[in-house]
């Protein structure tokens, strides 16, 4: 009984909500008599997906792997920056204004700059934008996690003669994981935005952003909407991959 209850709550109800959403959407388009070039309706999406199915798979993969690569870079660099800032107050105070300033620049303005500097290297500059837009929350959360480590933790191990590395490995790192995953959830969405930003602002024949752009050029509204749905789907997949990893590595932080 409890299991089926759970199933209803977690699967059936969300599905009903999605169905209602689609029906209302379809109905609004129908009642207003909007043609396809004004607003696509859900019933147009199926044919659009089918017509461009090969491109959706190919471009979807482009967007997916470049987002993951950018995020991976963010994790690497963000964690390293966070560690340095977490352990050294001087470096933290020195780097913070720089990072905040850098983070404040709207990344849409950085896209043409990067595209110009690394002209022709489409994959690299897309990954770079995904990285630039998403490393900040990771660096900040890791540095906060480390710098707020209760001194007792350190004292217990240091009084036994443990090295800094041991303290980091046994305590600081696992202790910071919940904050890290919190930031990673923000970062994964940001990286995804970054990838699409590059694909749409500087189209180079790759990724779902490019598909969206060609839909726009051809006034193919069903295709544009289909891309939006595909992007939403991909975003959800990426987000839940992070949630899944969080359950495994930082599940202890969750309390019932």
């Amino acid at each position: 009984m409890e299991l089926s209850n759970n199933l209803v709550r977690k699967v059936v109800i969300p599905l009903i909500a999605i169905a209602i959403f689609l029906v209302v959407w379809e109905w609004i388009v129908w009642i207003n008599g909007w043609p396809n070039y004004k607003m696509a309706s859900p019933s147009d999406l199926g044919p659009a997906f089918w017509k461009y199915r090969v491109l959706f798979l190919e471009y979807g993969w482009d967007t997916f792997w470049r987002t993951v690569a950018g995020l991976g870079l963010s994790v690497l660099v963000g964690t390293m920056l966070g560690m340095i800032m977490g352990f050294s107050r001087v470096i933290r105070e020195g780097l913070y204004p720089l990072l905040v300033g850098f983070n404040a620049i709207p990344k849409a303005t950085v896209v043409p700059v990067i595209a110009l500097i690394l002209v022709g290297l489409d994959d690299l500059n897309t990954i770079l934008i995904a990285f630039l837009i998403s490393f900040f929350p990771i660096a900040v959360s890791v540095s906060i996690g480390l710098s707020t480590l209760e001194p007792e933790y350190r004292d217990i191990l240091r009084s036994l003669g443990a090295t800094r590395l041991t303290i980091f490995w046994k305590i600081a790192l696992p202790k910071t994981l919940p904050e890290f995953f919190g930031a990673l959830k923000v970062a994964v969405t940001l990286a995804f935005i970054g990838t699409n930003l590059m694909e749409i602002v500087e189209p180079h024949g790759k990724g779902l952003g490019h598909l969206f752009d060609s839909g726009k050029i051809n006034a193919d509204y069903p295709l544009m909407f289909a891309v939006l749905i595909a992007l939403a789907f991909l975003g959800i997949v990426l987000f839940y991959i992070v949630v899944f990893l969080e359950r495994i590595f930082a599940g202890w932080a969750e309390r019932d």
Binding site: E150, E152, Y153, I171, L177, W252
Partner: peptide
């Protein structure tokens, strides 16, 4: 005084 534990 603060019995810090490794919560994980």
């Amino acid at each position: 005084q603060n019995p810090v534990m490794l919560e994980w």
